[in-house]
């Protein structure tokens, strides 16, 4: 540890520039006819810029709600959320946030390339093109040649890759992914996991990734955040000590297996 610590630059940059997400005491309550639900309570969370944090937790513990707060889709009922050094709404309006939904959420009347280009068309002139064109992004996610197809012609995994390309088209500094590979088979999921790590390495974007798979959480994340339910709160934050870049065979190492076992034990207490 000491060697790495000594090699670090003596003064780390100020917290505002290196912190992508800072939540303090964030709580979200939903009021319905059947009463109020505390979806999240008193969440403190910091994620560094360029980090990869995976979120695990039982169903209904508020993982999606947490991403929604960060993406400015809902406002927290208490506490403060800061994204990229400002309020989440400012980050959203600067197009610094990309969001990948569980079911891809493509527009069926647009071709694949038009779907990827959607963020460049809407937003009242806020649309700024990123470094990569929609075409290059399709290539990046392995869908070159499918530009003119319609979403209904694609498989679930291909659609999910389109939605990842779309989320990247503005070069977001923060990528929020809500169970993006939940509906896919293991093999496709493994491939997309590796591709996602490659995208992360190439773009340097900060990623928050929700999943129900212990393996996926351990394989992708630099750290795993475990949430407990009712009310949604942070149970534990587990660093992942695996060498990078990660590759699939790494999942057979004893370090990985132990990590997954630990995550499972913690998850059982959530």
């Amino acid at each position: 540890m000491s060697v790495a610590a000594l090699q670090r630059p003596p003064s780390r940059p100020a917290a505002t520039t290196s912190t992508a997400i800072a939540l303090s005491g964030v709580g979200v309550r939903f009021t319905t006819e059947r009463g109020t639900v505390a979806a999240l309570e008193n969440i403190d969370l910091e994620v560094r810029q360029g980090g990869f944090l995976t979120l695990l937790g039982p169903s209904g513990c508020g993982k999606s709600t947490l991403l929604r707060v960060i993406a400015d889709l809902i406002a927290p009922t208490s506490g403060r959320a800061e994204v990229l050094g400002g309020p989440p709404s400012a980050a959203r309006q600067r197009r610094d946030i990309g969001f990948v939904f569980q079911d891809a959420a493509l527009l069926p009347w647009r071709t694949i390339i038009e779907n990827v280009a959607l963020p460049l068309e809407v937003g009242n002139g806020r649309a700024r093109p990123g470094k990569r064109s929609p075409r290059e992004l399709l290539e990046l996610v392995g869908l070159a040649g499918w530009e003119k197809a319609y979403p209904h012609e694609l498989s679930g995994g291909m659609r999910q890759r389109v939605s990842i390309a779309r989320a990247l088209v503005n070069d977001p500094k923060l990528l929020l992914m809500d169970e993006p590979f939940g509906a896919l088979d293991e093999i496709t999921r493994d491939r997309l996991n590796e591709e996602l790590l490659q995208v992360w390495a190439e773009t340097g974007t900060t990623i928050l990734f929700v999943t129900h798979s212990l393996y996926e959480a351990a394989f992708l994340g630099e750290e795993v955040l475990l949430l407990a339910a009712r009310p949604g709160r942070v149970q534990e934050r587990v660093p992942v000590d695996l060498p990078s870049p990660r590759c699939i065979p790494m999942r057979e190492t004893s370090a990985f297996i132990e990590l997954v076992a630990h995550l499972r034990r913690v998850l059982e207490t959530c």
């Binding site: 929604r68 993406a71 400015d72 889709l73 959203r92 309006q93 197009r95 946030i97 990309g98 969001f99 939904f101 569980q102 079911d103 959420a105 527009l107 009347w109 959607l118 963020p119 068309e121 809407v122 937003g123 009242n124 806020r126 649309a127």
Partner: peptide, 28 residues
Amino acid sequence: SPQQLELMRILSASPREVFFKLRLLNAL
């Protein structure tokens, strides 16, 4: 779909854009 609406919000789409690029086409 609620997710398509959330997508439009992420993109800070104006009500006009939500109508012409989402609702109207969805209704066709």
